[in-house]
């Protein structure tokens, strides 16, 4: 069932283009030196979830998706192919692979079971950019006021903040950072990242 849903979603979107698709070649060129890796992960499923963290529904949702909702501000929890990002005291972003949205919305809505819960598919709102490698922190520091030192902002930390004056969701992973940027800001942020990384790219 889930597979056929995913297949039909993929088929109906055969023509779709990701917001930063045009930057693939320049991202690759900037990543060639090895100190930095820029890339886009297109079309991730993103579900905005709002629920009282103390309600039975929140617990049922955690069980249903196999990831308890992280209640500590600025943290992420992962399990299987899903990741749950803390966005606010009663708000989370459930991130999954491409095509998972219909099934995921169904599971979340079922687990909510009529309680006061909001489940909204916002997959098209943002695309995901990867900033990884030894120089990732230096590049982001050009436009982000947060302390990104691993002691403060290590793997599992999430922040909604500004990067070069664009609103982003910044996720720290073991292999670098992911930036969730609004589709309409993706080209700007991509250009900014390429510009900020010039000094860290071999031969730049």
């Amino acid at each position: 069932m889930a597979d056929s849903v995913a297949a039909s979603v993929a088929a109906s979107m055969a023509e779709r283009r990701s917001p930063a698709a045009a930057f693939a070649a320049r991202f690759e060129a900037a990543s060639a030196g090895g100190g930095l890796r820029l890339a886009e992960i297109p079309f991730l499923t993103q579900i905005n979830l709002r629920v009282d963290p103390k309600s039975p529904a929140a617990e049922r949702i955690g069980t249903a998706i196999g990831v308890p909702l992280p209640v500590e501000p600025g943290t992420a929890a992962g399990g299987g192919d899903l990741e749950v990002l803390w966005l606010g005291p009663d708000e989370w972003l459930v991130v999954g692979p491409d095509g998972a949205a219909p099934g995921l919305v169904e599971r979340l809505t079922e687990a909510a079971d009529g309680e006061h819960v909001s489940v909204v598919d916002v997959s098209a709102q943002r695309t995901t950019l990867v900033v990884a490698g030894d120089r990732a922190r230096d590049v982001l520091a050009h436009g982000c006021a947060l302390d990104l030192h691993p002691r403060v902002f290590g793997p599992g930390r999430v922040a909604q903040t500004m990067l070069a004056r664009a609103g982003v969701v910044l996720v720290a992973g073991a292999d670098g950072f992911r930036l969730l940027v609004r589709s309409s800001f993706a080209a700007y942020v991509a250009e900014w990242l390429l510009d900020a990384s010039v000094e860290y790219v071999a031969g730049g």
């Binding site: 005291p89 006021a145 922040a159 500004m162």
Partner: peptide, 10 residues
């Protein structure tokens, strides 16, 4: 109170 110290611009 939720996110900790941030720039005024936020």
């Amino acid at each position: 109170p939720w996110c900790g110290p941030r720039d005024e611009a936020e």
